[in-house]
Protein backbone atom coordinates (compact mmCIF):
# COMPACT_ATOMS: atom_id res chain seq x y z
CA UNK A 1 0.00 0.00 0.00
CA UNK A 2 1.30 3.45 -0.87
CA UNK A 3 2.33 5.66 2.03
CA UNK A 4 -0.15 8.32 1.00
CA UNK A 5 -3.09 5.92 0.79
CA UNK A 6 -2.06 4.44 4.14
CA UNK A 7 -2.05 7.90 5.65
CA UNK A 8 -5.54 8.70 4.45
CA UNK A 9 -6.93 5.45 5.75
CA UNK A 10 -5.34 5.72 9.17
CA UNK A 11 -5.93 9.47 9.53
CA UNK A 12 -9.26 9.53 11.43
CA UNK A 13 -8.12 6.93 13.91
CA UNK A 14 -4.68 8.48 14.35
CA UNK A 15 -6.13 11.95 14.75
CA UNK A 16 -8.49 10.81 17.49
CA UNK A 17 -5.66 9.10 19.33
CA UNK A 18 -3.24 11.99 18.86
CA UNK A 19 -5.69 14.56 20.16
CA UNK A 20 -7.10 12.62 23.07
CA UNK A 21 -4.28 10.31 24.10
CA UNK A 22 -0.94 11.47 22.70
CA UNK A 23 -1.35 15.12 23.67
CA UNK A 24 -2.43 14.25 27.21
CA UNK A 25 0.58 11.93 27.46
CA UNK A 26 2.86 14.80 26.47
CA UNK A 27 1.24 17.09 29.00
CA UNK A 28 1.53 14.38 31.65
CA UNK A 29 5.22 14.03 30.86
CA UNK A 30 5.67 17.78 31.25
CA UNK A 31 3.60 17.84 34.40
CA UNK A 32 5.74 15.13 35.97
CA UNK A 33 8.90 17.24 35.65
CA UNK A 34 7.33 20.62 36.41
CA UNK A 35 5.96 20.91 39.95
CA UNK A 36 3.71 23.77 41.11
CA UNK A 37 5.41 27.03 42.07
CA UNK A 38 6.67 27.83 45.51
CA UNK A 39 3.61 28.95 47.41
CA UNK A 40 3.87 32.26 49.19
CA UNK A 41 2.28 31.71 52.58
CA UNK A 42 0.85 34.44 54.77
CA UNK A 43 -0.47 34.23 58.31
CA UNK A 44 -3.95 35.71 58.65
CA UNK A 45 -7.01 35.58 60.84
CA UNK A 46 -9.79 33.29 59.64
CA UNK A 47 -13.29 33.59 61.04
CA UNK A 48 -15.74 30.82 60.34
CA UNK A 49 -19.12 30.24 61.92
CA UNK A 50 -17.47 28.68 64.97
CA UNK A 51 -15.01 31.44 65.77
CA UNK A 52 -11.78 33.10 64.69
CA UNK A 53 -8.26 31.76 64.75
CA UNK A 54 -4.87 32.37 63.22
CA UNK A 55 -4.17 30.31 60.16
CA UNK A 56 -2.15 30.54 56.97
CA UNK A 57 -3.31 31.13 53.44
CA UNK A 58 -1.67 31.18 50.06
CA UNK A 59 -0.86 34.73 49.04
CA UNK A 60 -2.69 34.69 45.72
CA UNK A 61 -1.12 37.81 44.24
CA UNK A 62 2.44 36.92 45.14
CA UNK A 63 1.98 33.36 43.86
CA UNK A 64 0.36 34.68 40.68
CA UNK A 65 3.45 36.81 40.08
CA UNK A 66 5.64 33.71 40.36
CA UNK A 67 3.32 31.91 37.96
CA UNK A 68 3.56 34.77 35.49
CA UNK A 69 7.33 34.58 35.59
CA UNK A 70 7.42 30.86 34.82
CA UNK A 71 4.09 29.66 33.40
CA UNK A 72 5.19 26.01 33.16
CA UNK A 73 5.87 25.78 36.86
CA UNK A 74 9.01 24.90 38.73
CA UNK A 75 11.34 22.56 36.84
CA UNK A 76 12.26 19.74 39.19
CA UNK A 77 13.62 17.17 36.74
CA UNK A 78 13.22 13.66 38.06
CA UNK A 79 12.85 14.80 41.67
CA UNK A 80 9.24 13.66 41.81
CA UNK A 81 10.04 10.28 40.26
CA UNK A 82 12.64 9.63 42.90
CA UNK A 83 10.89 11.10 45.97
CA UNK A 84 9.60 8.96 48.82
CA UNK A 85 6.11 8.60 47.41
CA UNK A 86 7.49 7.12 44.16
CA UNK A 87 10.77 5.32 43.54
CA UNK A 88 12.21 6.51 46.89
CA UNK A 89 15.81 6.09 45.78
CA UNK A 90 17.47 7.92 48.66
CA UNK A 91 15.22 6.16 51.21
CA UNK A 92 16.25 2.81 49.75
CA UNK A 93 19.86 3.90 50.04
CA UNK A 94 19.34 4.71 53.72
CA UNK A 95 17.54 1.44 54.35
CA UNK A 96 20.30 -0.43 52.53
CA UNK A 97 22.97 0.95 54.81
CA UNK A 98 20.95 0.66 58.02
CA UNK A 99 19.09 -2.63 57.53
CA UNK A 100 20.09 -5.46 59.85
CA UNK A 101 19.55 -8.18 57.31
CA UNK A 102 17.79 -9.15 54.11
CA UNK A 103 14.44 -9.69 55.86
CA UNK A 104 14.65 -6.32 57.57
CA UNK A 105 15.65 -4.67 54.29
CA UNK A 106 12.66 -6.04 52.41
CA UNK A 107 10.29 -5.28 55.26
CA UNK A 108 11.39 -1.65 55.25
CA UNK A 109 11.34 -1.35 51.46
CA UNK A 110 7.84 -2.80 51.28
CA UNK A 111 6.77 -0.21 53.83
CA UNK A 112 7.49 2.41 51.14
CA UNK A 113 4.22 3.07 49.30
CA UNK A 114 5.46 2.47 45.74
CA UNK A 115 7.04 -0.89 46.47
CA UNK A 116 4.17 -2.05 48.63
CA UNK A 117 1.79 -1.27 45.79
CA UNK A 118 4.07 -2.90 43.24
CA UNK A 119 4.07 -6.12 45.27
CA UNK A 120 0.31 -6.34 45.22
CA UNK A 121 0.01 -5.29 41.59
CA UNK A 122 2.53 -7.88 40.41
CA UNK A 123 1.02 -10.65 42.54
CA UNK A 124 -2.41 -9.77 41.23
CA UNK A 125 -1.23 -9.67 37.61
CA UNK A 126 0.74 -12.89 37.93
CA UNK A 127 -2.19 -14.81 39.39
CA UNK A 128 -5.25 -13.30 37.75
CA UNK A 129 -3.92 -13.30 34.18
CA UNK A 130 -3.24 -17.05 33.83
CA UNK A 131 -6.13 -18.13 36.05
CA UNK A 132 -8.67 -16.03 34.16
CA UNK A 133 -7.36 -17.23 30.80
CA UNK A 134 -7.43 -20.85 31.95
CA UNK A 135 -10.92 -20.52 33.38
CA UNK A 136 -12.12 -18.80 30.22
CA UNK A 137 -10.65 -21.61 28.14
CA UNK A 138 -12.34 -24.29 30.24
CA UNK A 139 -15.69 -22.53 30.02
CA UNK A 140 -15.28 -22.27 26.27
CA UNK A 141 -14.59 -26.01 26.03
CA UNK A 142 -17.62 -26.76 28.19
CA UNK A 143 -20.00 -24.44 26.34
CA UNK A 144 -18.80 -25.97 23.11
CA UNK A 145 -19.84 -29.37 24.38
CA UNK A 146 -23.48 -28.64 25.14
CA UNK A 147 -26.42 -28.77 22.71
CA UNK A 148 -26.69 -25.79 20.41
CA UNK A 149 -29.99 -24.40 21.73
CA UNK A 150 -28.54 -24.08 25.24
CA UNK A 151 -25.50 -22.16 24.12
CA UNK A 152 -27.19 -18.74 23.83
CA UNK A 153 -28.32 -18.61 27.47
CA UNK A 154 -25.03 -20.20 28.57
CA UNK A 155 -23.11 -17.44 26.81
CA UNK A 156 -25.27 -14.77 28.37
CA UNK A 157 -24.94 -16.09 31.90
CA UNK A 158 -21.20 -16.57 31.44
CA UNK A 159 -20.89 -12.97 30.32
CA UNK A 160 -22.74 -11.60 33.35
CA UNK A 161 -19.67 -10.92 35.51
CA UNK A 162 -18.32 -8.73 32.71
CA UNK A 163 -21.48 -6.82 31.86
CA UNK A 164 -23.01 -5.92 35.20
CA UNK A 165 -21.60 -2.49 35.97
CA UNK A 166 -18.75 -2.93 38.50
CA UNK A 167 -20.05 0.09 40.35
CA UNK A 168 -23.00 -1.78 41.79
CA UNK A 169 -21.74 -5.30 41.16
CA UNK A 170 -18.89 -4.72 43.57
CA UNK A 171 -21.18 -2.98 46.08
CA UNK A 172 -23.40 -6.05 46.22
CA UNK A 173 -20.48 -8.46 46.33
CA UNK A 174 -18.92 -6.38 49.10
CA UNK A 175 -22.08 -6.88 51.11
CA UNK A 176 -22.26 -10.59 50.25
CA UNK A 177 -18.75 -11.29 51.54
CA UNK A 178 -19.39 -9.37 54.75
CA UNK A 179 -19.03 -11.50 57.88
CA UNK A 180 -22.84 -11.58 58.05
CA UNK A 181 -23.46 -11.74 54.30
CA UNK A 182 -24.41 -14.89 52.46
CA UNK A 183 -20.95 -15.59 51.03
CA UNK A 184 -19.19 -14.56 54.23
CA UNK A 185 -21.30 -17.00 56.24
CA UNK A 186 -20.70 -19.69 53.64
CA UNK A 187 -16.93 -19.18 53.90
CA UNK A 188 -17.12 -19.24 57.70
CA UNK A 189 -18.97 -22.55 57.73
CA UNK A 190 -16.59 -23.97 55.12
CA UNK A 191 -13.55 -23.05 57.19
CA UNK A 192 -15.30 -23.77 60.45
CA UNK A 193 -14.42 -20.42 62.02
CA UNK A 194 -17.50 -18.39 62.93
CA UNK A 195 -15.47 -15.21 63.55
CA UNK A 196 -13.64 -15.22 60.24
CA UNK A 197 -13.95 -11.96 58.34
CA UNK A 198 -12.71 -11.68 54.78
CA UNK A 199 -12.35 -7.92 55.05
CA UNK A 200 -10.27 -7.89 58.20
CA UNK A 201 -6.94 -9.40 57.16
CA UNK A 202 -4.53 -8.58 54.39
CA UNK A 203 -4.14 -12.13 53.01
CA UNK A 204 -7.91 -12.63 52.93
CA UNK A 205 -8.43 -9.29 51.24
CA UNK A 206 -5.80 -10.11 48.61
CA UNK A 207 -7.42 -13.49 47.97
CA UNK A 208 -10.81 -11.85 47.63
CA UNK A 209 -9.52 -9.27 45.15
CA UNK A 210 -7.82 -11.99 43.14
CA UNK A 211 -10.90 -14.22 43.10
CA UNK A 212 -13.00 -11.22 42.06
CA UNK A 213 -10.44 -10.41 39.36
CA UNK A 214 -10.58 -13.92 37.94
CA UNK A 215 -14.36 -14.04 38.15
CA UNK A 216 -14.87 -10.72 36.43
CA UNK A 217 -12.31 -11.11 33.64
CA UNK A 218 -12.72 -14.79 32.74
CA UNK A 219 -15.76 -14.01 30.52
CA UNK A 220 -13.62 -11.97 28.15
CA UNK A 221 -11.19 -14.88 27.68
CA UNK A 222 -14.19 -17.17 27.32
CA UNK A 223 -15.74 -15.24 24.43
CA UNK A 224 -12.45 -15.06 22.60
CA UNK A 225 -11.67 -18.76 23.07
CA UNK A 226 -15.19 -19.91 22.34
CA UNK A 227 -15.02 -18.20 18.98
CA UNK A 228 -11.56 -19.63 18.45
CA UNK A 229 -12.84 -23.16 19.02
CA UNK A 230 -15.29 -22.76 16.15
CA UNK A 231 -12.42 -22.38 13.71
CA UNK A 232 -10.40 -25.42 14.69
CA UNK A 233 -9.93 -27.13 11.33
CA UNK A 234 -12.17 -30.19 11.36
CA UNK A 235 -10.12 -32.11 8.80
CA UNK A 236 -7.00 -31.89 10.96
CA UNK A 237 -8.96 -33.15 13.94
CA UNK A 238 -10.42 -36.01 11.93
CA UNK A 239 -7.12 -37.08 10.49
CA UNK A 240 -5.65 -36.93 13.99
CA UNK A 241 -8.44 -39.26 15.13
CA UNK A 242 -7.81 -41.64 12.26
CA UNK A 243 -4.15 -41.68 13.28
CA UNK A 244 -5.32 -42.84 16.69
CA UNK A 245 -4.70 -39.64 18.66
CA UNK A 246 -6.39 -39.66 22.05
CA UNK A 247 -8.71 -36.88 23.10
CA UNK A 248 -5.95 -35.35 25.18
CA UNK A 249 -3.47 -35.54 22.28
CA UNK A 250 -5.92 -33.80 19.99
CA UNK A 251 -6.37 -31.03 22.53
CA UNK A 252 -2.65 -30.75 23.12
CA UNK A 253 -1.40 -30.96 19.53
CA UNK A 254 -4.24 -29.56 17.43
CA UNK A 255 -6.54 -27.30 19.44
CA UNK A 256 -4.09 -25.55 21.74
CA UNK A 257 -1.58 -24.65 19.00
CA UNK A 258 -4.45 -23.37 16.90
CA UNK A 259 -5.51 -21.07 19.73
CA UNK A 260 -2.01 -19.82 20.46
CA UNK A 261 -2.27 -16.48 18.61
CA UNK A 262 -5.44 -15.80 20.56
CA UNK A 263 -3.65 -16.53 23.79
CA UNK A 264 -1.00 -13.97 22.87
CA UNK A 265 -3.71 -11.41 22.25
CA UNK A 266 -5.38 -12.20 25.58
CA UNK A 267 -2.08 -12.02 27.45
CA UNK A 268 -1.36 -8.62 25.97
CA UNK A 269 -4.71 -7.16 26.94
CA UNK A 270 -5.05 -8.87 30.30
CA UNK A 271 -1.54 -8.19 31.60
CA UNK A 272 -2.08 -4.54 30.77
CA UNK A 273 -5.50 -4.38 32.42
CA UNK A 274 -4.46 -6.30 35.51
CA UNK A 275 -1.37 -4.18 36.03
CA UNK A 276 -3.68 -1.18 36.16
CA UNK A 277 -6.02 -2.83 38.68
CA UNK A 278 -8.01 -0.12 40.41
CA UNK A 279 -11.78 -0.48 40.48
CA UNK A 280 -11.96 -3.52 42.80
CA UNK A 281 -9.70 -1.83 45.35
CA UNK A 282 -11.97 1.19 45.52
CA UNK A 283 -15.23 -0.76 45.39
CA UNK A 284 -14.16 -3.17 48.12
CA UNK A 285 -12.74 -0.36 50.31
CA UNK A 286 -9.55 -2.42 50.27
CA UNK A 287 -7.15 0.52 50.32
CA UNK A 288 -5.88 -0.44 53.77
CA UNK A 289 -4.70 -3.85 52.64
CA UNK A 290 -3.91 -3.52 48.97
CA UNK A 291 -2.79 -0.62 46.83
CA UNK A 292 -1.86 -0.36 43.19
CA UNK A 293 -0.23 2.32 41.09
CA UNK A 294 -3.60 3.30 39.63
CA UNK A 295 -5.01 3.54 43.14
CA UNK A 296 -2.24 6.02 44.00
CA UNK A 297 -3.08 8.07 40.94
CA UNK A 298 -6.69 8.14 42.02
CA UNK A 299 -5.71 9.18 45.54
CA UNK A 300 -3.32 11.86 44.26
CA UNK A 301 -6.04 13.31 42.06
CA UNK A 302 -8.56 13.34 44.91
CA UNK A 303 -9.73 16.72 46.00
CA UNK A 304 -7.98 16.61 49.36
CA UNK A 305 -4.61 15.93 47.79
CA UNK A 306 -4.53 17.45 44.28
CA UNK A 307 -0.97 16.23 43.66
CA UNK A 308 -1.06 16.58 39.89
CA UNK A 309 2.68 16.15 39.35
CA UNK A 310 2.75 13.08 41.55
CA UNK A 311 -0.18 11.59 39.64
CA UNK A 312 1.59 12.38 36.37
CA UNK A 313 4.79 10.71 37.51
CA UNK A 314 2.91 7.61 38.68
CA UNK A 315 1.09 7.49 35.32
CA UNK A 316 4.39 7.55 33.44
CA UNK A 317 5.74 4.81 35.73
CA UNK A 318 2.59 2.78 35.01
CA UNK A 319 3.12 3.04 31.27
CA UNK A 320 6.76 2.05 31.68
CA UNK A 321 5.73 -0.88 33.85
CA UNK A 322 3.27 -2.06 31.22
CA UNK A 323 5.92 -1.79 28.51
CA UNK A 324 8.39 -3.81 30.58
CA UNK A 325 5.83 -6.51 31.38
CA UNK A 326 4.69 -6.73 27.79
CA UNK A 327 8.15 -6.64 26.24
CA UNK A 328 8.30 -10.44 25.71
CA UNK A 329 4.94 -10.36 23.95
CA UNK A 330 5.98 -7.33 21.92
CA UNK A 331 9.20 -9.04 20.81
CA UNK A 332 7.16 -12.08 19.85
CA UNK A 333 4.80 -9.90 17.82
CA UNK A 334 7.77 -8.21 16.15
CA UNK A 335 9.10 -11.59 15.04
CA UNK A 336 5.76 -12.87 13.76
CA UNK A 337 5.19 -9.52 12.11
CA UNK A 338 8.49 -9.90 10.28
CA UNK A 339 7.19 -13.17 8.93
CA UNK A 340 3.81 -11.93 7.71
CA UNK A 341 5.01 -8.56 6.48
CA UNK A 342 7.60 -9.87 4.07
Amino acid sequence: MKHKTFLWFILPSALAMLLFIAMPIVSVLLQSVFAPHEQVIREVENCDVFGCKKSTIVDVEATAALREAAPMGRFVGTAIYTDRNHLALSEIGTIWSSATGAADFFKQVLNLPFYGALTFTLTYTALVTPLAILLGFSIALAVNAIPRFLRGPAIFFSLLPMIVTPLVGALILFWMVDARGILGVAIQSLVGDPDLSVKASTPMMWSMLIVYGVWSTAPFAFVVYYAGLQTVPQDTLESAMIDGATRWQRLRFVIIPHLLPLTTFLLLIKIMDNFRVFEPIVSFNAGAHAQSLSYFIYADLSATNRLLSSAAATSVLTILGVVVLLSPVIVHTWKSFGRTAS
Partner: peptide, 23 residues
Protein backbone atom coordinates in the same frame (compact mmCIF):
# COMPACT_ATOMS: atom_id res chain seq x y z
CA UNK B 1 2.91 -0.64 10.87
CA UNK B 2 4.48 -2.53 13.73
CA UNK B 3 5.40 0.70 15.43
CA UNK B 4 1.94 2.16 14.93
CA UNK B 5 0.52 -0.90 16.65
CA UNK B 6 3.02 -0.69 19.51
CA UNK B 7 2.36 3.02 20.00
CA UNK B 8 -1.36 2.24 20.07
CA UNK B 9 -0.61 -0.32 22.76
CA UNK B 10 1.31 2.23 24.82
CA UNK B 11 -1.61 4.62 24.39
CA UNK B 12 -3.87 1.96 25.80
CA UNK B 13 -1.62 1.65 28.87
CA UNK B 14 -2.33 5.23 29.94
CA UNK B 15 -4.55 5.11 33.04
CA UNK B 16 -7.97 6.55 32.28
CA UNK B 17 -8.13 8.52 35.52
CA UNK B 18 -5.12 10.57 34.44
CA UNK B 19 -6.48 11.11 30.95
CA UNK B 20 -9.84 12.30 32.19
CA UNK B 21 -8.46 14.67 34.78
CA UNK B 22 -6.23 16.14 32.07
CA UNK B 23 -9.22 16.80 29.82
Amino acid sequence: VFWVLIVALVFRAMPHVTLVSGY
